[in-house]
Design a protein around this nucleic acid. Structure first.
Lengths: 337, 337
DNA sequence: ACAAAGAATGTAATCGTTTACAAGAGCGAA
DNA sequence: TTCGCTCTTGTAAACGATTACATTCTTTGT
């Protein structure tokens, strides 16, 4: 009997009503009579009926899917954001289609593809490297930018990046550092630029020198952090402290210089950004700026659902607070010679 | 004109053929005449037609979705497996619905839900804690177990866990360790048990003592690794080396004991399992057993697609090789007193 | 008593594909 | 010529829901 899953027809037959009534009972219970409603619900229970999402979506001209586009699936930074997204989208009966922009050849082309494919009712974009023009597509579904943002008017969820940089620099300055360097993310990335700008203006406000040779370009990855570590090791005139634009890079930097015999924080202080899980498990613990990643995901999903609901392409943006987390990787500078 | 996306009807009209021919051109090009095929493809290009996946899925009685069920989305260990899965499923026009078992109250209930919901054509299960009975559901879609396995007869992709444990212990023994401990995953997990079994028999084969008080239970997380570190610190009679069932735990252990002033590998040697990205960036670098995670994802997806294709509920299992990675966290034991 | 409004339900079109089946065209063999 | 192939293409019926519109049955005001 249970061979095939029951359809709405089966329920209608068992309940002795039309399919329309069954459908109404399930979507707008208030419009059907109490007795009918009960009969239908009994029939649903008896047959084990579950609505066929594909058919429903076809008829309602929606897909029940949102696409989440991120730079790199293998980056642990995103997993908690995904968890936040899922916690909102799943109860709302939306599936998440997860795709990364970096695995293919042309990231913007991929974005365009997803926007025109009609495969999804909305898109959440976690990659700020893409240019705003890629979103200028007529008839595209609503988009929410999380963590990053392209134009001013696009709905987004972002964190106080400039303030985070200022907190990091302020902490180092308060410890007595006057020679502070920075390891950036990839150039062109909005996060990179904003944090760099925050770094610059914080230095300025504190009357500290900005040395361009102490600003090293990275790409948020551990490998690039390790490369920055090697660069620092070979500098003749080194900064005594560094602010790194991501914890991943801080991890790479830390390991690299430690393996070279450098003591942290005795010889050099470092401050990261993100507060990924490992930050507290390093030795020394990594001083950093916390981003509430689950919350970013939650808010982005809520924003997008609201837009899908109303069919609007615009919406509010949200700014999420960062928090300074003090651990052991930043201390007073080595004694001046 | 571009108001609504073009349908197959529009293409048919432009190309001067029937919708059936358009459909065939797109799915089985070989059966249509060359000239017709070209006319259709021109019309497709002209109209910007893209097949409506929802309609296609409805007609073909599939969902175009596979569910990936993992213990915890926020665990970086899984992200590369996801990347591997995506690299196979995306080209095959399947979306991935990602869900975790731990966020809700009853994991087995969630699994049951997904199996009966008919929301997916298949399921990939990355959580070996669930009991086999949960899969005994008539009419369920095909399931592939990745990393873990419940019954013998279910198709799965797994790695040589016992051998990995043996490699770890063998390496430590060769370095001269005779007092070797183990930090396990959560009890009841298949991975945990298999690696523990591998650990036990390796010790036996090498004629080394098995001390139950040197076997500490963890749960694969960094936190539990740190807890194991604290446990080790308080032991009166300590092992000189530990094999930890996951790199995450090794990271937690390492940080904890280092912060207590212990030197690794001078005072204690450790070997992890997984070779997650950070392993090479720690100081010292983490000696570990590599699991090719992307490959695990790729093979699991391929297996599942084959089962979906043939409508079969059974299939082959695959055993993937592990590799010993020597880094700096394991060395000769401290000089005997 | 009857018209009008309201409540509950049924009828049937529709969403955009895929595909079983039918049918037409062309061709060689008997 | 006629039959039986093969090769292409078209016709039309699904797939399983939702919903505008029509219909029936009550109820209420005058």
């Amino acid at each position: 009997m249970d061979r095939k899953t029951a359809t709405i027809q089966d329920v209608a037959r068992v309940a002795g009503v039309s399919t329309a009534t069954v459908s109404r009972t399930l979507s707008k219970p208030s419009v059907v009579a109490k007795s009918t409603r009960e009969a239908v619900l009994d029939a649903v229970a008896e047959t084990g009926y579950r609505v066929n999402a594909t058919a429903s979506n076809l008829r309602r001209q929606r897909t029940g899917t949102v696409i989440v586009l991120l730079p790199n699936l293998a980056n642990p930074f995103f997993s908690q954001i995904l968890a936040g997204l899922a916690s909102v989208l799943t109860p709302a009966q939306f599936g998440m289609l997860i795709a990364d922009t970096q695995s293919g050849p042309d990231p913007e082309e991929r974005l365009r593809h997803y926007l025109t494919s009609g495969q999804a009712d909305g898109l959440i974009l976690l990659d700020g490297t893409l240019s705003p023009e890629a979103l200028a597509i007529p008839g595209r579904p609503p988009v929410v930018l999380a963590c990053e943002w392209l134009g001013q008017d696009l709905p987004s969820v972002r964190v106080e990046n400039e303030k985070g940089a200022a907190l990091a620099v302020g902490h180092l300055a308060r410890l007595g550092h006057r020679r502070i360097g920075h390891v950036t993310g990839p150039r062109g990335n909005v996060l990179t630029e904003t944090r760099l700008e925050g770094f610059r203006s914080a230095l300025g406000n504190l009357g500290l020198p900005l040395r361009e040779d102490w600003v090293v370009e990275g790409d948020f990855s551990m490998d690039s952090g390790a490369a920055a570590g090697r660069a620092w090791l070979t500098m003749q005139d080194r900064p005594t402290a560094l602010f790194l634009s991501s914890d991943e890079m801080a991890v790479g930097f830390l390991g690299e210089v430690q393996r070279a015999g450098v003591l942290v924080p005795e010889d050099v202080s470092i401050v990261g950004f993100d507060n990924i899980e490992i930050a507290q498990h390093l030795s020394p613990g990594l001083t950093t700026i916390r981003q509430p990643r689950t919350q970013i995901g939650v808010r982005a999903a809520e924003l997008l659902l609201a837009m899908i609901e109303t069919g609007s392409l615009t919406g509010p943006s949200e700014l999420i607070e960062v928090e300074f987390i003090r651990r052991g990787s930043a201390a007073r500078p080595p004694h001046e010679v």
